[in-house]
Design a protein around this nucleic acid. Structure first.
Lengths: 202, 202
DNA sequence: CCTCCACTATGACGGTCGTCATAGTAGGGT
DNA sequence: ACCCTACTATGACGACCGTCATAGTGGAGG
């Protein structure tokens, strides 16, 4: 199937980047992980590593975009869904974080990936803002709240990875949901966030 | 002065790590940036790059620790101080993020630095928790809030770097201060967060 | 003066990196 | 049957990586 090898390389690059970063991911790694033929890197990606990193970042961004749109009319459900997504992705090894975050840190190495990361973060924030304004929250309040949500989730994922525990995710989720319930005039949701204990930490 | 070369190398490593990550920082870079003699890397750091990365991470953690203790009785001032610190550090180039965050992402490459990052994040959270409990907030609420503060700041720094704008920092600061004012029974502080516009963004 | 030790200079090692040139193959359109 | 295009195989390149062994240096203590 045409374009299949290419797509596999992008997906593999995304997976590797979110666990090793862009600097830590070599083209040989991508080749091995995707099973792609060695000779076709610069055929599919004439721009070399930079182009591959950029497309991987862009793809990671759109994956979250699609997820965000599945909870278009319930901010609390949206936040809960995001945390449950990251809990599932991190598994019990805590060996990954967000590929977009990793790309955001690579401004020297791959300016294209850096730019793609910026666009993804803005896009996420805009989508969440729209969900909030649909619930009657004015834009000048919704945008900062959406920014807080995005930054807090990104930070919580890194903290969870560092401590190898779901606790940061649980705690940040609790606080964000509490904030949203306070912000929205509708019925509150007192259900606490709970997850498997995983291995202990400091 | 004895130990001066060593300390310079640690500081240089911290500065380079927070702009290039651990994988992206070579020992040659550290040598050049610190002006340290090439031959003495493995004299001062027998553990090689891993040890240097670990000590750099540890040092970055303690720098923030000291800053946190300077606002021991005012949560709002503490948060404002942190954001103003990062605004100053990022300058107008937005070429850096937190060294501890960078180290948290390097679990394969340098497990020692990863561990040091985890400890630093926990320590920060504990200190902020204590500041909150001193204001009468119960611990079971203070700890999640402190976790939110740490994760949101880390995430906001990355977002600011990605978008090359202070706006994420401004917006997250505004929301965190609002949350704290809502949490604390004392007088509110309506002063909005404002910073230089810097270069434009989406 | 001599010794000793903390520190530095130098250069090499095996390995991996991104990149690319060249040659080859497979397969559908005509 | 043919060719042209899309794709792959192979191997080399220069540069850099972390690491380390070896040989110094210089100054403080005796």
């Amino acid at each position: 199937m045409a374009g299949d090898v290419r797509k596999n390389m992008i997906v593999s690059a995304t997976l590797l980047i979110r666990e090793r970063g862009i600097a830590g991911t070599s083209l040989a790694d991508v080749i091995e992980h995707s099973g792609a033929p060695r000779g076709s890197i610069y055929h599919h990606f004439p721009g070399g590593k930079s182009q591959l990193a950029e497309e991987a970042t862009r793809w990671a961004g759109t994956v979250i975009n699609r997820k965000l749109r599945t909870a278009a009319n319930d901010p609390v459900a949206l936040v809960r869904m995001l945390f449950s997504f990251w809990r599932k992705e991190m598994g019990s090894e805590f060996g990954i974080s967000c590929a977009v975050l990793a790309a955001a840190l690579a401004d020297d190495e791959s300016p294209e990936a850096h730019q793609a990361a910026a666009e993804a973060l803005v896009r996420w924030t805009e989508i969440i803002t729209e969900v909030l304004t649909d619930q009657g929250i004015p834009t000048e309040r919704a945008y900062p709240v959406a920014t807080l949500i995005v930054s807090a989730i990104e930070g919580a994922v890194v903290m969870a990875r560092a401590q190898r525990t779901f606790q940061p995710l649980d705690r940040v989720e609790t606080e964000l949901v509490r904030l949203l319930n306070h912000l929205l005039p509708t019925a509150p949701d007192p259900t606490p966030a709970v997850s498997t204990p995983a291995r202990s930490s400091a």
